[in-house]
Amino acid sequence: MKTLILLFTVCLLLSSCATQNGNTYQQLGGQAKIEEIVDNFIYEIEFDPVLFEFFKDSDINRFREKLIEHLCLLTGGPCQYTGDSMEQVHAGMNISESSYNHGVDLFINAMTKAEIPHPIQNKVLATMIHTREQMIYQ
């Protein structure tokens, strides 16, 4: 009986997490808003001398496509991420904690320009935080 209760509790928690992520995607505004955020972020990067250095030789169309996929997946949307791992993408870039944090600030600006409410921005950032260690130079 205890095993059955434990199993039920675990299933309930897992479905709750999936629902919360799905809700984040929906609360964000779905695919159209994700694309708007990514486009805003690319614009932010283009006019930022610190982050532009990391992207100046990038295939920006591929970056856009893969960031849209990744953000959609992380927020619980119906997407598949088909890009490389975060470690592979950021290898050799020597991203400092300061540069990473600056990128987060620009991403927040991009969400604000897309009129994403701050509570939803926080949910989005919470889904993305696990990629931090994979991006910063160790």
Rank of each mutant, 00 (worst) to 15 (best):
I108L: 06
M1D: 12
D105W: 08
D48C: 00
V124I: 10
E69A: 00
I120Y: 02
F55L: 00
E115C: 00
V89K: 09
I95K: 04
G83F: 06
P78M: 02
V10W: 10
E69K: 06
L106P: 10
G92S: 01
F8H: 11
S96R: 05
I45D: 01
T3G: 06
F55V: 05
E133S: 12
I120E: 04
T82F: 02
I5N: 10
I108H: 04
L4W: 15
I129K: 13
K123T: 08
F63V: 15
A32F: 04
Q88K: 15
V10F: 13
P119D: 06
I116P: 00
L51N: 08
I136D: 08
G77E: 04
G103N: 07
N21A: 14
I120S: 01
V50P: 02
G30H: 07
I129W: 08
M135H: 09
M86I: 03
T24R: 04
S16Q: 12
Q27P: 00
T19R: 12
I120N: 01
H118I: 10
N101L: 12
Y25T: 03
A114I: 03
L106Q: 09
G22F: 03
Y81F: 13
L71V: 14
D59P: 03
P119V: 01
C11P: 01
H130I: 10
G77H: 08
E65S: 10
Q88L: 09
L4H: 12
E44H: 06
G92I: 05
R62T: 14
S96D: 07
M111Q: 07
E69R: 06
L6H: 13
L73E: 10
Y100F: 15
A110P: 10
K2N: 13
M86E: 10
R64K: 15
I95S: 04
C11L: 15
T82Q: 09
I95E: 00
Q31I: 03
V10E: 07
G30K: 09
V124H: 08
N23I: 01
G76P: 09
L74G: 08
Q121G: 00
H130A: 03
F107Q: 02
N21R: 15
N23T: 08
Q134M: 12
F55M: 02
L67M: 09
I129G: 01
A18F: 12
N101I: 07
D48F: 00
F41C: 01
P49S: 05
S99E: 15
